[in-house]
Structure formats: C-alpha cells, structure tokens
C-alpha cells in the first residue's frame, strides 16, 4: 500500500532522516523548502502492514518525533515546520498539490 511522506513548509538547510518501521526511507543533509510551492521533498514507500511507525529526526534542530499511522489505503503524510520550529503532521488520503 502506498505511503507518501512529503516534507513541506519551513525546512531550511535541515538535516532530515525519515524512517518507516525503523527502515530509513529518506536521508537528506541539506533540505530546504521552495517557498513558491511550499514543497521540500518527498518519498513513496510501499508498506505491507498497518499501522506503521513513521519517525522523523531533524538533527540540527534536535527534534525527533514519531507517529503510528494506519495505512489501510493510500495515505499521504505532510510534515511541516512552524515558524517556532514545531513539527506539524498532516495526514490525508488525497495526494498533495502544490502551487
């Protein structure tokens, strides 16, 4: 089943590591949001069980969070950083669009 994880607003030269059930799905040492689209990067993972634990680690900000996410149908996870540096998770069953 498709699990799409998008890194969206607020990233600025961030060192990002994403893992799904402890498997490293994305590692980027210098990730920056393109502000005209609000998009920084994404990864598609084919998962075979539900729920899965998605963990995101932002080493420069010393932020690590994980969340259990049901993936019983195509699932889209958006991760954004607030102006204060907080991590916001958005879970959808529709693909994200950027403009």
């Amino acid at each position: 089943m498709l699990l799409h994880i998008a890194l969206q607003e607020g990233f600025h030269h961030d060192d990002v590591r994403l893992s799904v059930d402890a498997w490293e799905a994305l590692a980027n040492g210098d990730l920056t949001t393109r502000r005209q689209t609000g998009y920084a990067g994404s990864v598609n993972v084919d998962v075979t069980r539900s729920p899965v634990v998605v963990e995101v680690a932002l080493s420069k900000r010393k932020v690590t969070q994980s969340k259990s996410i049901p993936v019983d149908r195509p699932t889209y996870v958006g991760l954004s950083l607030t102006a204060e540096g907080g991590l916001v998770w958005k879970i959808s069953h529709e693909p994200f669009g950027y403009l």
Binding site: Q36, T37, Y39, P95, F96, G97, Y98, L99
Partner: peptide
C-alpha cells in the same frame, strides 16, 4: 518534472 502534484510555479528564482 515534479509530476502531477505541481500545478504551477513561479520558476524564476
């Protein structure tokens, strides 16, 4: 090239 998820972009930076 990003695919169908990008509806438009001010590409000129």
């Amino acid at each position: 090239e990003q695919g169908t998820s990008l509806g438009g972009i001010m590409f000129d930076d």
